[in-house]
Computed example of a mutant assay.
Amino acid sequence: MGIFSWIILGLIAGILAKWIMPGRDPGGFIITTLIGIAGAFVGGFLGSLVGIGGPVSEISIGSIVTAVVGALVLLFIYRKVKG
């Protein structure tokens, strides 16, 4: 999957993570989007470590779920550090 697909996946993951974990975030939409993109990478990496997936080859429900979980973890950590 190309970098553009990772960005799209991260954008979707960031929006879904914000929807699942609402609240005021220091930084707003742009930071949430960047956290979503990073969450896509972190989710894919953690998924490959535990054996539930490898590098994402296409945008699918499984890759979105993995990216959202990664984004939720990063959003939680970000809120604890900045909050």
Rank of each mutant, 00 (worst) to 15 (best):
M1V: 09
M1P: 05
G2N: 14
G2A: 11
G2R: 11
I3W: 12
S5Y: 04
S5C: 09
S5N: 14
I7N: 03
I7K: 04
I7T: 10
I8L: 13
I8V: 15
I8M: 02
L9S: 03
I12E: 00
A13H: 03
A13K: 02
A13T: 02
G14S: 04
G14Q: 03
G14W: 01
I15F: 13
I15M: 09
A17R: 01
A17F: 01
A17T: 08
A17P: 08
I20C: 07
I20K: 05
M21D: 13
G23Q: 08
G23N: 04
D25N: 14
D25S: 08
F29P: 07
F29S: 15
I30W: 12
I30R: 07
I30K: 03
I31N: 04
T32Q: 14
T33N: 13
L34K: 01
L34N: 10
G36W: 00
A38R: 02
A38N: 03
F41C: 11
V42S: 11
V42I: 15
G43D: 01
G43Y: 02
F45R: 10
L46G: 05
L46Y: 06
L46P: 07
S48F: 08
L49P: 05
V50P: 05
G51S: 08
G51A: 05
G54K: 10
P55Q: 14
P55H: 14
S57F: 09
S57K: 13
S57C: 07
E58W: 06
I59R: 04
S60M: 11
S60V: 07
G62W: 15
G62F: 12
G62K: 12
S63E: 00
I64H: 02
V65P: 02
V65N: 06
T66F: 09
A67V: 10
A67P: 01
V68G: 05
V69N: 10
V69M: 11
A71K: 01
L72P: 00
L72T: 02
L74S: 01
L74V: 09
L75G: 02
L75R: 01
L75E: 08
L75Q: 11
L75M: 07
F76M: 12
I77H: 05
Y78Q: 06
R79M: 13
R79L: 09
K80Q: 14
K80A: 13
V81R: 03
K82M: 15
K82N: 07
G83F: 07
